[in-house]
């Protein structure tokens, strides 16, 4: 085992140090560890290349003299191999270290620790930045985050079962385009393949495994997608007029697009994204909230209240 490792390291060093492409025969001649028949060496080399590539090392193939039909050569470009952050200051190193530390105990912790190790190998001292950090930890998104980020980068198609608001299990096929976290929950936004529209899903509402497969060939990132507006909902066509007692109804006030004082009450105008969700929020506030408009919302609330009175009488 040790010999294979030595050979991989030696190959890396040789391909990094060379200024021009090294041909296979040059490699076999000069890099230690390539032994046996021509066929054996060939097989060894193919496997070694795959191994290095799987470690994320880019091996370039080319020929050093394009005019003649030369044998292909190989090299590793220093600038691709090395962590190149340009001229980096101690303060920047500290910021990156703090960013990595935010993952303590959460999904990307292991990757973050490896990144930290590389940062501390750059030979740049870090600044002691006094920034509040204890309150800022990333919430654990579970084991799915690495799969999702990879799917986003490679525009793969992900398939999962999603619990909708009626607890129905629906299979969704989505090309993910964004990942965001808010109030302790992680969300994926993506183009739902059935309706060809952007939808956002809360990851903990996914039931079971997420599988990633090759994405549609002609996929294009929707121009209209704005990651900062994921939580704003679709442009709402309708509004509700709701009276809220002064000093009450904070969750509704947060959603209101305008507010007008009516003495003991304030009248709010709220966009309606989902009638059932809004009805539920209105009911939560009991006698401190009263719906003026629209008629359907009043009807829905009256129907719920009648049931509530009946069920609890």
């Amino acid at each position: 085992m040790s010999r294979k490792i030595e050979r991989l390291i030696n190959l890396t060093i040789a391909l990094l140090a060379t200024k021009r492409y090294l041909t296979k025969s040059e490699i076999f001649r000069s890099v230690e560890g390539y032994e046996g028949s021509a066929e054996t060496k060939e097989r060894m080399f193919e496997r070694d290349k795959d191994d290095l590539r799987s470690l994320g090392i880019e091996i370039e193939v080319g020929s050093f003299d394009p005019i003649f039909n030369d044998e292909a050569g190989y090299r590793i470009k220093q600038e691709k191999y090395q962590l190149d952050l340009g001229e980096i200051t101690p303060t920047e190193i500290s910021l990156l270290s703090l960013a990595a530390q935010a993952w303590q105990g959460a999904s990307f912790d292991e990757a973050a620790q490896k990144a930290l190790l590389k940062l501390s190998s750059m030979g740049v001292p870090s600044d002691s930045l006094s920034l509040p950090t204890s309150a800022h930890k990333v919430n654990d998104g579970g084991g799915d985050l690495p799969l999702i980020t990879k799917a986003i980068a490679e525009q793969q198609l992900i398939t999962f079962v999603y619990l909708d608001s009626q607890l129905d299990r629906q299979e969704r096929k989505v090309v993910p385009v964004g990942l965001s976290s808010r109030s302790g929950f992680w969300y994926i936004s993506g183009v739902d393949q059935e309706i060809q529209e952007i939808r956002t899903f809360r990851i903990d509402r996914i039931d079971g495994e997420i599988t990633a497969t090759k994405g549609p060939k002609d996929f294009e990132l929707p121009q209209s997608f704005d990651p900062a507006r994921v939580f704003d909902g679709d442009a709402s066509q309708s509004f509700a007029i709701i009276d809220v007692r002064k000093g009450k109804g904070f969750s509704l006030r947060a959603l209101a697009s305008s507010s007008q004082s009516l003495g003991e009450w304030d009248q709010l105008r709220l966009p309606i994204y989902n009638l059932n969700t809004l009805a539920s929020l209105v009911l939560w506030h009991g006698i401190d909230v009263y719906v003026q408009e629209p008629f359907e919302l009043r009807e829905l609330i009256v129907a719920h209240l009648e049931k509530l009175v009946n069920n609890h009488g």
Binding site: Q101, F108, K118, V138
Partner: peptide, 17 residues
């Protein structure tokens, strides 16, 4: 010089930042 960051390591840093 340290090796470049992998995809996962980069994502961890970007989200952390």
């Amino acid at each position: 010089k340290p090796r470049s960051v992998t995809f996962d390591e980069g994502v961890a840093l970007i989200l952390g930042l």
